[in-house]
Amino acid sequence: MEFKHKDIIALRDLGKEEIELLISTAENMREVNSRDIKKVPTLRGKTIINLFYESSTRTRTSFEIAGKRLSADTVNIAPSNSSATKGETLADTAMNLLAMKPDIIVMRHAVSGSHYFLSKKVGCSIINAGDGAHEHPSQGLLDMLTIKDKFGRLDGLKVAMVGDITHSRVARSDIQGLTKMGSSIYLAGPPTMMPPGVERLGNVTVCNTMKEAIQDADVVIMLRIQQERQGKTLMPNTREYSRYFGLNPENVKWAKPDAMVMHPGPINRGVEMSSYVVDGNQSHILKQVENGVAVRMSMLYHVCGGGNVE
C-alpha cells in the first residue's frame, strides 16, 4: 500500500487502506517518541509552515513537535501577528508564503473547505488542521489510533458521540474515518445541535436520548460545547445542557464496563464532562494527546512522499 495524495484535507477523501497505512505508520512512529534522542533525519531540509487562523494549543504544538522530530524546519504563523489583520486575503498570504518555498503548509481556518481552495492555488502539500465545521483529519486519525490501542481493532465497535455535532469538525472526521473502518456511530445531543441528514454519512444512528447512544457502547466520545461558534439560542444554559448531555460517574455506567471515554479537548469541566470522569480510569484523553504527535508525524511523512504523484 502506498500513499499517493499530495494533501490530507479530509478523511472523506481517503480510502480504508490509506487510513490503515497512516495509522500503522503512526504506531511505529511512537518508538521515536519514547527514545532519549527523539529525532530522526527523515524530513531534513523540508520546511513546514503552521498557518493557524484560529487559536490552538494542542494541535499546533503537536504538529510543530511532529515536524521537529522528523528534522523538518517548522515555522508558526498566528493571525494576531500576520498580515491577515491588515486585510490580506488568504490567497495572497498563500502566494507570499509559497514564494518562500515551503514543502508543507499545515493550516487551520474558520471557513469550511478553505483548504481545497488553497490546494488549487499552491503546489506544496496542504494538511488540514481544522477547517470551520468541516473536518479535522489529524484528530480523527489519532482517535482511531487510541481506540485501536485498546481494542486491537476498529470494526464492530459501538462508538457513541455526544454533544454539539453541528459545529464539530472532530465529529465529522471521526464519523468519516470510523464508519470506513467498520464501527457503528450513535449520536446524541440537543436537536438544535444535530445536523439534519447526518445519517447519510454512513453507519450513523441519531438517538433521542443520551442513554440510547451510550447504552453498551465500547467508546464514548464527548464533544466540546463550542460557545465561540454558536449563538445564544441553541441551548438555554450550560447547567441544563450538563444535566441532559453531560457525562458523569452515573451515566458512564450505561456504557460497557471497559468502555473508553475520550474528548478532543479543550474540556469544559463540569459542562460536557464531570471532573470525576475526565480524571477517571476510563478516560483516555491524555493518551489521545500522546498519540497526536505520532499521527501527525505519519501524516507529514506520507504527504512528503506523495508529492508529485498524480
Partner: peptide, 23 residues
C-alpha cells in the same frame, strides 16, 4: 531495527513506504 526513517533515497517521486517496527 527498522531503517525506513533513516534512508538516503527519499525521492519526491516515490510514495513513502510504511514505517516498520523498531524494538
Amino acid at each position: 531495527i527498522d531503517i525506513t526513517l533513516y534512508r538516503d533515497d527519499f525521492k519526491q517521486q516515490a510514495p513513502h513506504k510504511s514505517v516498520g517496527k523498531t524494538d
